[in-house]
């Protein structure tokens, strides 16, 4: 039986259908990259997997059981922005998870317990290359360092599933390439199941073991809200295949220029 099952999920915002007839079976330890035009519901899909929102209809199962109704430590997340706590230093951000886990009332550890927690995050600090920035605040870090911190923070809770919402979208190309190396390395070590939304088709092909394309199969110019997006391509990928032309034509090269469809389509 597959690890994550999505069965006939439909999601509406008011009258607007965002997702419809989404079906998906994902094996353990997959790295699913999700691509699609702006407003195609790919981020919405990620929010459903996170239980940040509940699907209007249909069901999502993890390990055969219905998904927990609210976000929890079994599913980690890294967003493009606002992923780390600005009022905590790098180390404090990393020990936050064990602090709230062990001190249910104060949410803080003191003395020896705090020292142990600090020691416990040392390896992770090193793995993401932040050992020299341990006591700095996020606003003093570069964008890439902030995202490395966010990833490390999420991994420390050892989630079964890691959800990434365009985590490298705001980074420059060089930093992004190094983040790809890091991400693949961490994924190989932890063997988590990863879902990653990206608008960069090449990134999707480079990182994933499976590529999901979200798109609308039906389109009404007079009433674009009447039809939702679904998974139109579901490709197993192994690393270095060229990007298929039909998908590239549909999603477009990742140079950030919006297509006419994107402009008429509202943001999601």
């Amino acid at each position: 039986m597959s690890f994550v099952s999505v069965r006939n999920v439909q999601h509406l915002y008011g009258d607007r259908i965002v997702l419809e007839r989404v079906n998906l079976e994902v094996e353990r330890e997959s790295f699913c990259t999700i691509v699609g035009l702006s407003g195609c519901g790919k981020s919405t899909f990620l929010r459903l997997l996170l239980s940040q929102e509940r699907p209007t209809s249909g069901e999502i199962l993890i390990d055969g059981k219905p998904i927990a109704p609210e976000p929890g430590p079994d599913r980690g997340v890294v967003y493009q922005r606002y992923s780390v706590f600005p009022h905590l230093t790098v180390t404090e951000n990393l020990i936050f998870g064990s602090e709230v886990d062990r001190a249910r009332f104060t949410g803080r550890l003191f003395g020896a317990a705090r020292r142990r927690a600090r020691d416990a995050v040392g390896d992770m600090l090193e793995a993401v290359g932040l050992e020299h920035a341990a006591d700095t605040y996020p606003h003093q870090l570069s964008g890439g360092m902030q995202q490395r911190l966010a990833i490390a923070q999420a991994l420390l809770r050892e989630p079964k599933i890691l959800l990434l919402d365009e985590p490298f979208g705001a980074l420059d190309p060089g930093t992004r390439a190094r983040m790809h190396e890091l991400m693949l390395d961490l994924w190989k070590r932890t063997r988590m199941t990863i879902f990653m939304v990206t608008h960069d088709l090449k990134e999707g092909f480079r990182l994933g073991t499976r590529l999901l394309v979200f798109d609308k199969v039906r389109w009404d110019d007079q009433a674009p809200e009447r039809y939702g997006a679904t998974i139109t391509y579901d490709l197993p990928i192994g690393g270095n295949e060229p990007v298929p032309e039909d998908i590239e034509a549909r999603i477009g090269p990742s140079d950030g220029t919006p297509t006419a469809r994107e402009i008429t389509d509202a943001d999601t």
Binding site: Q52, P71, P73, V77, Y82, F85, R104, A154
Partner: peptide, 23 residues
């Protein structure tokens, strides 16, 4: 406070009281 931070705290295991006091 950005919704992302509140969700992130939940994925790290924080309950409502801890979200109030630590976030």
């Amino acid at each position: 406070i950005p919704r992302e931070l509140v969700i992130k705290a939940q994925t790290l295991g924080a309950n409502s009281w801890q979200i109030a006091t630590r976030l």
